[in-house]
Computed example of a mutant assay.
Amino acid sequence: MTRNNGDIQDGLASEIRRQFGSEAIKRFARSMPTFRAETDIPDHLRDLLDELEGVETSPAGDRRSR
């Protein structure tokens, strides 16, 4: 039995999210200047980033509309 293309894409997307969420990747990214977070960003941008983080960590954030 073969899997349809949607199942393969969903599985791949899930695997990529899992790997990018690993502690090893997070440590590696933090060590690179390009991915280092700025601490002195304007308040309105900090608020937008906090809102984005909230959406990403919510259970509904795992489902992407297509």
Rank of each mutant, 00 (worst) to 15 (best):
D43E: 15
G54Y: 00
K26N: 07
P42C: 03
G54L: 01
P33F: 03
F20N: 04
L48T: 15
R64P: 01
R27M: 10
R66N: 06
R36K: 15
I25H: 06
K26P: 01
I41G: 05
P59M: 07
P42W: 01
R27S: 09
H44F: 12
L12Q: 09
R64Y: 04
M1F: 04
D43F: 02
L12D: 01
G6H: 15
Q19L: 09
S65A: 14
E56H: 08
A60D: 11
E15M: 07
E38G: 13
M32A: 15
Q19V: 09
T57F: 07
E15C: 10
D47L: 04
R63K: 13
M32D: 10
T39M: 06
R17H: 10
M32I: 14
Q19R: 14
T57K: 09
G54E: 03
E38P: 00
E51Y: 09
D62A: 08
R63L: 06
D7E: 15
T34S: 11
R3V: 08
G11C: 00
D43Q: 12
D47S: 12
M1E: 02
A37V: 11
E38L: 13
T2I: 06
D40I: 01
M32K: 15
I41H: 10
A29I: 04
I8L: 09
E53P: 00
P42L: 03
G61I: 03
S14R: 09
L49H: 14
A13Q: 09
E15H: 01
D40G: 14
S65H: 08
R27Q: 13
S31P: 01
H44E: 15
D50V: 11
G61L: 00
G21M: 01
R63E: 01
P59T: 02
R27G: 06
S14P: 03
A24D: 09
P59G: 05
Q19S: 08
N5H: 10
R17G: 00
S22E: 03
R3I: 05
G11T: 03
S58C: 05
H44I: 06
S22H: 07
G21C: 07
G6E: 14
T34D: 13
S31R: 08
D62G: 10
S65N: 11
S22T: 07
I16H: 01
